[in-house]
Design a protein around this nucleic acid. Sequence first.
DNA 1: GATGAATGAGTATTCATTCAT
DNA 2: AATGAATGAATACTCATTCAT
Lengths: 178, 178, 178, 178
Amino acid sequence: MNKREQLIEIATRLFSERGYENTPLSVVCEKANVSKGLISHHFKSKDGLLREIFLKTTKLIVGINTIDNINQNPNEQLVELLESFFSQLEADKLFFQFNMNVIVQPNTREVLDDLIKERSSFIFKKTKEVFDKIDSKNSLVKSHMFIAELDGIALNYLGVYRDFPLKQIKEYIIKKYT
Amino acid sequence: MNKREQLIEIATRLFSERGYENTPLSVVCEKANVSKGLISHHFKSKDGLLREIFLKTTKLIVGINTIDNINQNPNEQLVELLESFFSQLEADKLFFQFNMNVIVQPNTREVLDDLIKERSSFIFKKTKEVFDKIDSKNSLVKSHMFIAELDGIALNYLGVYRDFPLKQIKEYIIKKYT
Amino acid sequence: MNKREQLIEIATRLFSERGYENTPLSVVCEKANVSKGLISHHFKSKDGLLREIFLKTTKLIVGINTIDNINQNPNEQLVELLESFFSQLEADKLFFQFNMNVIVQPNTREVLDDLIKERSSFIFKKTKEVFDKIDSKNSLVKSHMFIAELDGIALNYLGVYRDFPLKQIKEYIIKKYT
Amino acid sequence: MNKREQLIEIATRLFSERGYENTPLSVVCEKANVSKGLISHHFKSKDGLLREIFLKTTKLIVGINTIDNINQNPNEQLVELLESFFSQLEADKLFFQFNMNVIVQPNTREVLDDLIKERSSFIFKKTKEVFDKIDSKNSLVKSHMFIAELDGIALNYLGVYRDFPLKQIKEYIIKKYT
DNA sequence: GATGAATGAGTATTCATTCAT
DNA sequence: AATGAATGAATACTCATTCAT
């Protein structure tokens, strides 16, 4: 594999597991079997690496949200979105952990400001497109509520409640949007 | 004011604004007009100071959640809870910022593990008491959903969407729980 | 001895011998038997240490130039100045080396800009006071020439000619100003 | 232009402006639109590049000092030398800056030791040839003084006094040697 | 001649913590 | 209770150099 890709992969995992601030580049390089200088060569700085990683996860998210079929009715689309959200949440906790982290932490938030804005408006636009078909009058508020609910679920599942009843919540929320 | 209290107050603000990791104690001491040695004298370590602060904010939260009047019916209680949540969210962004921060960040999460558990079970217990009166069958899921929704709203309001329609969301959610 | 003073003394010597850029703080600390953190504690940064040192050498120079006796006639004063210059140049090459270095090197020049200006105007003022008594009409040019000659001698003696005939030059120039 | 030449030209300017130590090769390569590997290919090392540049400036100096006409009397020769020195000093400050720099800085001084010796003995020889014709007895001291004066003027003009009266100094010194 | 990925030693700086006073 | 000098490990970053292509 390309050393650059290797670096991104390892860094993504470590930043997610240990947090950006608490992951020294020395550890990243060591685990990626790569010299320290290579980061500066490819990404200029630690922040540069972070941006690269965030950009990549955005592409992943965009990929998921773009699959929605035009043939489906809006409620089917929502359910599909929810299904993919919950399966992803269970399968890849770290992915969510990382994204929560960098958005909430003031300095990473600042470093990624433009990228976060770009990503979140994309997500909002896509969500609103679906709610527009259901109820164009309240679509703005409903879209925000929909996104907030999922974020809140992820936050509580990941960070707060160890015994969070994810499966029941999933059933409950899917029933609600059917 | 007591130097100890002064230290806590300044540290709370700085940790909230800049994040725990990115706030050197030297800066805290400087802004609090206090010598470096005093922190270890009073709080043993930086983590100790963090725990002290988290404990204090927990007391504040407990205070809010305990006001609920026994004379009110459960829906009135929910609405009162929502009102106080939204007014607090608007009034003291930093308070929420701080709490999100330390819960999501892996190492602060670890330092505060017991305190976070304690606080969140208290909140959950109090919330469930209300939902038990409304619908004892689904109270567990509904309580979790209620908490998740509020957290998600805070997260999106604080960290993601600059133009988050807080007022409309508030109206929407209050109507929902009435 | 005070560790702070010790640090300044060692750093002065090393900066003179090896040049500012080529003297790592690690070496300074090692030779001064002092931890790395102490530099940041006392001088904030390497540049801060440099400024401190330059300031100290300025005080030394000011000390020398202020001894000139009011009872002497101007030519006697010049000769005394020359005598002290040449004996200092022979006794403490490093002192001159250091001063040349930091003035000529662009980045140290920038760091010390205000201090260099201050020092050089002091020297010029003092020199001109003497030449004013001899020939007030050409005192400006003559003062500048006097200073330039001495600097040029130091430069050639230290940096260019290994076999620079310092003694003969001294005789020649003292005769000239008598 | 040849990439090799381009590299030398850019490096000369940058070394002069920012100093040798403070000019990374990466910057030189970037500004010269050239890859990093090319430097070691052409000059072996950074020191090699420095030597190449110093050699080139020496040729320039030798060129200037060799024009002196045999038909002129020695005083005329001195005046011509002075004229060319002052016009060069005004026209190309960086040229002098660079030469001062590398001679005074200990490590560049070491790298260029043989070249500096060679150049300075050439200059001294040429100067002494003129002074021998005027006054063979004191020619050694007078030659050294002549060179030192010019160096001192350059030093003060470039590095110390912003309001150095170069024109008046020039008149004064030309009158002196006529 | 020319490129650019990769290295690794080196360097200033940061910062929580300790401890004598 | 309070100070501030001192420590030393940790850390991001720099930069000349090498080497395969």
